[in-house]
Amino acid sequence: MQLKNSAQRFGALAKFFHWTSAAAFIGAYIVVYYVIWFMDDESPDALPVLNIHWVLGVLVGALVLPRLVWRLLDVQPDDPPGSALEHRLAHAAHWGLYGLLILMPLTGYIGTGAPTDFGLFSIPSFRDTAAFEWISSHYGLTWEAFEAPIDVVHHFVGKWIAWGVVVLHIAAALFHHRVRKDDVLTRMLP
């Protein structure tokens, strides 16, 4: 399998970034909805489960920058047959997905007051960083005053925007595969 993209297909590295990000993003949703539906999210028993959500979110956030760099450096497969408007909408939707891949992990991390434990190492909570200390001292914000609006953004985008964008992305891939019968879906499959 080729590492780099071609005019016809995505390469192994682009596929790795796509499917790893997708699995981590969807996995983070499954975990957090498990906590919401089946646990008391304020209970200490929920913290280890929420930690899985945080680990997956950090993974999404850690992958997005190299993914974007690779996208900008590597050739992109040719657009399938379609109108200029369809292509512009598809490109806008893809950049919207990248925006989500940045916004959700960023707001998730800076709005979480507990460390993220990866087992072998731990990432301190944003509350315990020099960055928050600087924000707090310069703007006179307590953690509670800082965290509340960040959480509102994270939860609103996660609940009302992200699912729609992801479902639109999946529906478009299936539309191309089933209706248009082009290679848009298959060129990204492993």
Rank of each mutant, 00 (worst) to 15 (best):
M39E: 15
Y34H: 11
T107H: 08
D183E: 13
V167A: 14
V152Q: 12
V60S: 02
G57A: 06
G111R: 01
E133I: 07
A130R: 10
I161E: 01
W37S: 11
N5C: 05
S137K: 01
V75S: 02
R180A: 06
Y33Q: 11
I52N: 07
P190Y: 03
W37E: 11
V31H: 02
N5K: 01
S21N: 12
L103C: 07
R71H: 10
A114I: 11
A92T: 05
L185G: 06
V75W: 00
H91Y: 06
D128S: 14
H155M: 10
R187I: 07
A90E: 06
Y98D: 02
T129H: 04
I26A: 13
G140K: 05
A84F: 11
G11D: 08
K159Q: 12
Q8Y: 11
F16M: 13
D128M: 05
A148K: 13
I26G: 11
G111A: 07
E42D: 15
G57C: 02
A12S: 13
L141C: 09
T186H: 12
G96S: 08
G27W: 02
Q8T: 14
W70H: 03
F126P: 01
Y33V: 03
L120I: 14
D151F: 10
V55D: 04
A62S: 12
L174Y: 07
P115K: 03
V165P: 03
E147P: 04
I52E: 03
